[in-house]
């Protein structure tokens, strides 16, 4: 197992280098001078040149990129152009907020999604099934930013139940977490239902029923664990969706997380910060997928990690 994890992490390295390279190329195509942006319009050319020299921006591009990679390997992502703080610190300051938001919405979404999916599968073609599946499809069809705006409008401005933006109390997290979770819950419900339908047609389920097990034991003892394998895959695939969603939710609800920081970094042409956030997010994604693959081995003894 340990060997497998190490091998997977080594295999991830070229991917992360590739992600960094593409980001680096993109950033160098972005119009506008980041140093001018940082120093203000009225800086004299001499100072400008000195700052560029200090930041290493006069070196050839491949030297700049090589230096970034070398430092990144040692855990140093450079300093933000805009604030002067280390990028790693800025990421670590905001990431816990994003994780808190993502986990709280994922937690509720997974419970609701799996429960609804199972009921829909067990009572296939019932009224509940149809209603749940239409709702779920609507959930994945609604743009997350619009749901956020409508939620602010209805629950914040009209009903005045919840604050519409900011991040100072647990109450502030409710709307963003729900908004972020809707899409997640909807897709989990859809996949759980179809995975469950597949499993309950298998021979071993018929055997379990034939030997007189209670329906409850069949569903929870035999079907659930087997149906969870594809569902776990989907949960893993949604990690990046959750990060994308938190980018929008944080921006709309003014939550100081990594998503909002990334938009701020891009619009301020804070290249080291953008570079660092992209690399960090890609690493989170790669590790997330690794965790999913490892969890297969626990769910399905037939899977051998190699």
């Amino acid at each position: 197992m340990a060997g497998y994890i190490v091998r997977r992490l080594i295999m991830a390295l070229p991917v992360l280098v590739g992600v960094s390279l593409i980001t680096f190329i993109l950033l160098n195509v972005v119009p506008g001078d980041p140093v001018l942006e940082m120093m203000g319009k009225h800086v004299d050319p001499l100072t400008l040149e000195k700052v560029r020299e200090q930041l290493g921006l006069n070196d050839p591009l491949y030297v700049q990129f090589g230096r970034f990679l070398f430092n990144a390997l040692r855990g140093d992502l450079g300093k933000s152009f805009k604030t002067g703080q280390p990028v790693t610190k800025m990421i670590m300051d905001t990431f816990p907020t994003t994780v808190k938001l993502a986990l709280s919405s994922a937690f509720v979404a997974i419970i609701i999604g799996i429960t609804v999916g199972i009921i829909s599968a067990v009572k296939q073609y019932s009224f509940f099934d149809h209603a749940a599946m239409i709702t779920a499809l609507a959930g994945i069809s609604a743009p997350i930013f619009w749901v956020a705006v409508v939620a602010q409008l209805v629950f914040g401005l009209q009903l005045k139940w919840l604050p519409i933006s900011g991040y100072s109390s647990p109450k502030h997290m409710i709307l963003p977490a729900v908004v972020l979770g809707i899409r997640f819950a909807a897709s989990i419900a859809r996949y759980t239902r179809s995975a469950f339908l597949e499993v309950i047609r298998q021979d071993y389920i018929r055997t379990a029923r034939a030997k007189g097990l209670a329906e409850r034991a069949v569903i929870f003892g035999h079907a659930l664990k087997n149906a969870m394998i594809p569902v776990v895959t989907i949960i893993g695939m949604q990690i990046s969706g959750l990060l994308t969603g938190s980018l929008l939710t944080e921006t709309i609800f003014a939550i100081p997380g990594l998503g909002r920081l990334s938009i701020w970094a891009l619009s301020n042409r804070d290249f080291p910060l953008v570079q660092g956030i992209v690399l960090f997010t890609a690493a989170v994604f790669v590790i997330g997928n690794l965790i999913v693959d490892i969890s297969y081995a626990f769910l399905d003894p037939r899977v051998r990690l190699q």
């Binding site: 991917v15 992360l16 590739g18 992600v19 593409i22 980001t23 993109l26 950033l27 195509v29 972005v30 119009p31 990046s240 990060l243 994308t244 980018l247 929008l248 990334s262 938009i263 891009l266 619009s267 953008v274 956030i277 992209v278 997010t281 890609a282 994604f285 790669v286």
Partner: peptide
């Protein structure tokens, strides 16, 4: 492995 939306936003900034 790219954060999709961040990539789109970056491309739109660039182009």
């Amino acid at each position: 492995a790219f954060p999709e939306l961040l990539f789109y936003i970056g491309v739109m900034f660039a182009l």
